[in-house]
Every structure is written in structure tokens, then in C-alpha cells.
């Protein structure tokens, strides 16, 4: 067992029933080398202040619910260790650019709406039944989308994106990466339905390539790449519509 040290954790607090605006409270938290930021928060809740509210579930960087800001950097609190910040104090805040419900809990309903808007499921060219058998893919076809399919909807990328913060009509990194994930899947034929989202001002063109989303993504989804590659498709689509105004449906 490693030795115990003490770190100062400054935490944003907001109680919608009492507070007009958030404030900060600092806690002295004893920690050992193997303790994550999440465990630090749990220590506060168990021993210092039971009213501190935050989300978590898996403790192993897979459920995507424990995201927060530590010193202005979006992180998964279960995947970041207190020892890496010590001896400096840390400031823990809810994910940037989302409305705060209470303390570290944010309202992610805006993202959920956006996720729905990108048709995040396979749209087969013809309706399939179990009798049609498995829908086979080559390893190369899987490789085309597998990276984008790793998203755990943790929203760190939205907290990293100033364009989303300045204008939350922007569809944003994770939703656009998932859009690219389904478009890149050989079993999918839904590209046309998704094109409207891609082409919109709030679609890929809302991105100015700040690029921090890809840096903070714990699953290396690389949303900045997904979005900027779709700018090529969007441009092609734009010109093709001029060339064949009657040939492409609407």
C-alpha cells in the first residue's frame, strides 16, 4: 500500500434550489497513488460532504458518464489519477458548454437530440430478414469505420469545442463522428438521409478545426478527422447538385 498524501480539491457547487450561480468549495482529500479523481470525489461524498453530486458507473473508462473538467481540461475522472496533479491543487468543474443541473452533473439532452438526428443505425438498401443470413464484411471494410465506432458518448469532445460553446446549434464532434461511422459502413445505404445534417451550416461547416476534440477523446475516435473528411463529401454533393439538378431526388 502506497503512502497517503493530501491534495486540495476545489469543486464547483451549484444547487438549483438555492443558488443563483455556481460557487466553489475546497476539500482536503487524503489519497494514495492508485486513487483516481473519481475516487477523490467519492471520498468527499462519503466523508466530507454527502450533498456533492456527480455521475459515474463503470470506473473503467467505458460507460462515459464520469466526464468533467479538471483544471479546464475535459477528462474521464475514473481514468485520471490524483498523483499526476499533486502537489498542485485541482479544480473540478462540470463539462464545459453544457447547462449545469447540479454540481458536476450536466444536462446532455441537447446532445441526445443531435445523436438522433444523424440516423445512428444501419439503414439497409433493401429490408432484410433473418433468412437473408449474416451481413458479411471483410476486415478492410470493418477497418473503414471501426475507429469511429469506439465512441462512448462521454461528451469530452463537446466540452473541448469552443464552436459548440459559442453556438450550440452546431451538431458537434461525437454526433458527426457517428454520422461518419455509419456512412463508412459497407452494410449501410443511408448516406442520402444523413447528407442534410452534413451539409447544414450547423453540420460539418460549423467546424473550424480547432482540433482539441480529437486530443481529448479517451477512445481516439478522432472526430476532427471525421468531420473534415465529410467536408469533402459535402462539397462534392454541392457541386453534383448543380451538375445534375434533376437526377438526385430533391
Amino acid at each position: 500500500m502506497s503512502q497517503t498524501r493530501t491534495i486540495m480539491i476545489e469543486c464547483l457547487r451549484y444547487d438549483p434550489e438555492q443558488d443563483q450561480a455556481p460557487h466553489y468549495r475546497t476539500y482536503e482529500v487524503p489519497f494514495t497513488d492508485e486513487m483516481s479523481v473519481l475516487e477523490g470525489l467519492q471520498y468527499i461524498k462519503d466523508h466530507l460532504d454527502g450533498s456533492l453530486t456527480f455521475r459515474w458507473s463503470c470506473r473503467m473508462a467505458i460507460c462515459g458518464s464520469c466526464g468533467c473538467m479538471v483544471n479546464h481540461q475535459p477528462i474521464l475522472s475514473c481514468q485520471s489519477f490524483l498523483r499526476d496533479y499533486y502537489p498542485a491543487r485541482i479544480r473540478v468543474e462540470p463539462l464545459e458548454h453544457f447547462p449545469i443541473v447540479k454540481d458536476l452533473v450536466i444536462d446532455q439532452s441537447d446532445f441526445l437530440g443531435k445523436l438522433e438526428s444523424v440516423t445512428p443505425y444501419l439503414v439497409p438498401a433493401q429490408p432484410l430478414t433473418p433468412e437473408d443470413g449474416p451481413n458479411l464484411q471483410t476486415p478492410r471494410q470493418i477497418e473503414d469505420y471501426l475507429g469511429y465506432a469506439q465512441c462512448i458518448n462521454c461528451l469530452l469532445c463537446y466540452a473541448a469545442c469552443p464552436q459548440y460553446g459559442l453556438n450550440n446549434a452546431f451538431t458537434g464532434p461525437a454526433a458527426l463522428a457517428l454520422l461518419a461511422r455509419y456512412n463508412a459502413d459497407s452494410r449501410d445505404a443511408g448516406q442520402k438521409t444523413r447528407m442534410e445534417v452534413v451539409n447544414a451550416e450547423e453540420g460539418v461547416w460549423g467546424c473550424t478545426l480547432v482540433g482539441l476534440c480529437s486530443e481529448v477523446c479517451p477512445k481516439h475516435v478522432d472526430p476532427a478527422r471525421a468531420i473534415n473528411r465529410n467536408k469533402i463529401n459535402s462539397t462534392q454533393d454541392y457541386f453534383l447538385r448543380f451538375l445534375a439538378p434533376f437526377g438526385r431526388g430533391s
Binding site: P16, P22, H72, E96, P99, I100, P162, G165, L166
Partner: peptide, 15 residues
């Protein structure tokens, strides 16, 4: 629920 939206002023100072 009543939520709190933080302002974006001086956002470039944050990172």
C-alpha cells in the same frame, strides 16, 4: 430543472 449555463466570455483564456 432549473439549469445554469456558464458564459463564454474570454473562452480563449481557458486552454
Amino acid at each position: 430543472p432549473k439549469t445554469y449555463v456558464r458564459p463564454m466570455n474570454r473562452w480563449w483564456m481557458r486552454h
